[in-house]
Amino acid sequence: QIGDLVNIDLDLEIVQSLQHGHGGWTDGMFETLTTTGTVCGIDEDHDIVVQYPSGNRWTFNPAVL
């Protein structure tokens, strides 16, 4: 839910696979593998929007978090 702290604890290849159809994966997202983020929103597809200390916001398949 919004305000929750979240981490990704999966291998890169699994995360990339799960992201298909959920915003995809870009090289800029590598920070998300090692950094705790804060849930800042849930979109119309029930994907999770997470903000990181860098100021970046990324959209994830809920199965990734």
Rank of each mutant, 00 (worst) to 15 (best):
Y52G: 03
D9E: 12
V39L: 02
G41Q: 13
V64D: 00
V64I: 11
A63G: 07
F30Q: 14
G41F: 12
D45P: 04
R57S: 11
Y52W: 01
I14T: 14
N56Y: 15
I2Y: 07
P53V: 05
T35A: 08
I14G: 07
L12P: 11
D27H: 11
Y52D: 02
V49M: 09
S54E: 02
L33M: 12
H46F: 13
I42A: 07
G23R: 02
G24L: 00
M29C: 00
I2D: 04
T26I: 10
V39H: 07
V6R: 03
T59S: 07
D43V: 06
Y52E: 01
T32G: 08
T32K: 02
G37C: 05
E31M: 01
T38F: 10
W58D: 06
H22Y: 03
P53M: 00
T35W: 02
T35Q: 09
V6I: 07
D27F: 00
I14Y: 10
W58T: 04
T36A: 11
D4V: 06
Q19H: 06
G3S: 03
W58R: 03
I14K: 11
L5A: 10
G37R: 00
Y52C: 12
G3C: 12
V50W: 03
N56P: 01
G41H: 14
A63T: 11
L33Y: 12
E13Y: 08
P62T: 02
V64N: 03
T59L: 04
D43C: 05
G23N: 02
D45N: 15
I42H: 10
L33Q: 10
R57Q: 09
D9T: 12
G24M: 02
F60R: 08
N61I: 00
L65I: 08
L10F: 08
T36I: 06
V49A: 01
D43G: 08
Q16P: 05
V15F: 11
V6Y: 04
N7W: 10
H20N: 15
G55P: 03
A63D: 14
A63Y: 06
L5C: 07
T36K: 09
I42R: 09
S17E: 14
D43Y: 01
D11T: 09
H22C: 04
V49W: 02
G28V: 09
F60V: 05
V49G: 00
H20Y: 10
G23L: 05
M29Q: 08
N61A: 04
S17K: 15
I48W: 01
G3F: 02
N56E: 07
L12F: 12
I8T: 03
Q16W: 10
G24R: 02
T59K: 15
E31K: 00
D11M: 07
S54L: 01
D45I: 02
L18S: 04
L18K: 09
D27A: 07
D27P: 11
G41P: 04
E31Q: 00
F60C: 03
T38C: 10
L5G: 04
V39I: 12
D27M: 07
T32V: 13
H46L: 14
I14Q: 14
D27W: 08
V15M: 09
H46A: 13
Q19R: 00
D43L: 09
Q19Y: 02
R57L: 11
A63E: 15
D43W: 03
G37T: 01
T26F: 11
P53K: 07
L65G: 05
T26E: 12
M29D: 05
W58A: 03
V50T: 15
G21V: 03
T38S: 08
V64Y: 04
A63R: 11
T32R: 02
D43A: 09
T32A: 15
V15Q: 03
D9P: 07
N7F: 13
V15A: 07
T36L: 05
S54K: 00
D27Y: 05
G55K: 02
T35R: 11
C40M: 14
G37D: 03
D47N: 15
D27K: 10
Q16D: 07
V49Q: 10
L18A: 03
G21E: 08
